[in-house]
Design a protein around this nucleic acid. Sequence first.
DNA 1: GTTCCGGATTGATTGAAGTCAAGTAGGCGC
DNA 2: GCGCCTACTTGACTTCAATCAATCCGGAAC
Lengths: 256, 256
Amino acid sequence: MSQLHTADTRDPWQAPPVDDGDAERFCSTCVFGRVCMPQGFSKDALNRLHCLIEHVGPFQAGQTIFRINDPFSAVFSVRAGLVKTFVIDDKGREQVLGFYTPGELIGLDAVYPSRYPCNAVALDTTLLCRFSFGAMANLAQELPGLQQTLFQLMSKDISAALWGKGDYSAEEKFAGFLLDWGRRLARRGFSARNFNLPMARTDIASFLSLAPETVSRVIRKLSDDGVARFDRREVELLKPEALRKLASAIPNLGLD
Amino acid sequence: MSQLHTADTRDPWQAPPVDDGDAERFCSTCVFGRVCMPQGFSKDALNRLHCLIEHVGPFQAGQTIFRINDPFSAVFSVRAGLVKTFVIDDKGREQVLGFYTPGELIGLDAVYPSRYPCNAVALDTTLLCRFSFGAMANLAQELPGLQQTLFQLMSKDISAALWGKGDYSAEEKFAGFLLDWGRRLARRGFSARNFNLPMARTDIASFLSLAPETVSRVIRKLSDDGVARFDRREVELLKPEALRKLASAIPNLGLD
DNA sequence: GTTCCGGATTGATTGAAGTCAAGTAGGCGC
DNA sequence: GCGCCTACTTGACTTCAATCAATCCGGAAC
């Protein structure tokens, strides 16, 4: 593939590393923020750390970041955009495992089998930071803080994976999803009341193990009840308390 | 509480550390086996490692090992017996999160919040190894192999937590559960065809997000179809292939 | 503007599993 | 042995969400 394509269609993996001076803007909300940003680590360590981080992208909506069974070598932090991970079951139906918004980390579940256990695709124009896991682990050998960060991130992912286990009504699941999404955006300084649900209804439905029609009906019901206002993919939570009450059936498993 | 009770009712936490020379028997199947057993580590490291491992128990069936929100300091490896972890939702209903059979590790999901995110109780007379996580992490700082083991175990737990996510029929879920349980027993050298399901039907039901009645009916159906034979809690898989076909709907997410 | 298309919504019907209620069977203490 | 208690099973009925089928709507291309 030629390098002379437009920026939008070139192979995202071939994009040159960029230093666009946006560390403040992006890295401050990244889960690795405290690792990458110059505080607490020696200049030497930081230099080595920066050598093992690579900016990749942009990926356009629909482009694959990794495929199930690809050999594992790196985890990815979302800098901008949106990523979903999913598997395909034996009947060809897609099961969405997670959505990743800027600041969140993808791929820690691939460490053990040394292969990615799922597929990851961009749902929107997406920029990523690629962290070589082997190099990270080596560095963690010398930096207790980094080791601890990795342990914590992985531990958190266990709890996150357990989220929603149990049989809950469609309304409870969706309420929990809305609140969770708002909370994650709020971490980056956005409103937790007024936000965008940038993924397709079908993907939300798959993630919650519901039919798209059911999601539609739940949205209708929440609108009718005045609990939230939906306009296309925009959401405004009018009665967060009502949502919290609905979602309270779902245990939180140590997620903040 | 007096130390003069019978062995069976004394506080399990007060049991003195034992060196019953059973390392070969128990530790060889433990997930930490290669860590605890003298291979690849210096004598010094091993001594320090053994200092941070404590044998606890026996816990009798029904006894609590830790409670949700207890401050986290250690992970536990099951030496003998059976443990279940669970949370209680806001309506007082129990959601079982996992069962742990000898050789398996409990508590890695507690690292991040530094509190246990669930309860753990013994379902049978249970012996545990208690590993101080802080001490482990310190040691991992010097032993790359130990650090890698911890990363792998945590990564595996992420995939394990994701198991069964998706909407599957009661029969598919139960078939997957049977095969998974057999596989885990097989790791310890037991038969994967002929084994015991030592937990209550209610607990299996909760784990699979089914009603106990539904589990009963699925068992009945599998019996009628000649797929497996059930006698009380004993199981014999007569047509493992049929089970595998049923369970094939559930993606395996990198579990062996 | 008009057309086309895919995602989203709505309605009608079905079906799998939950609930409720009753009955059975082991295991244990006496 | 007997009774009791708990776990499990079975049957009848209900319900929530899936499925099937028909629109609807908004955005992109022309």
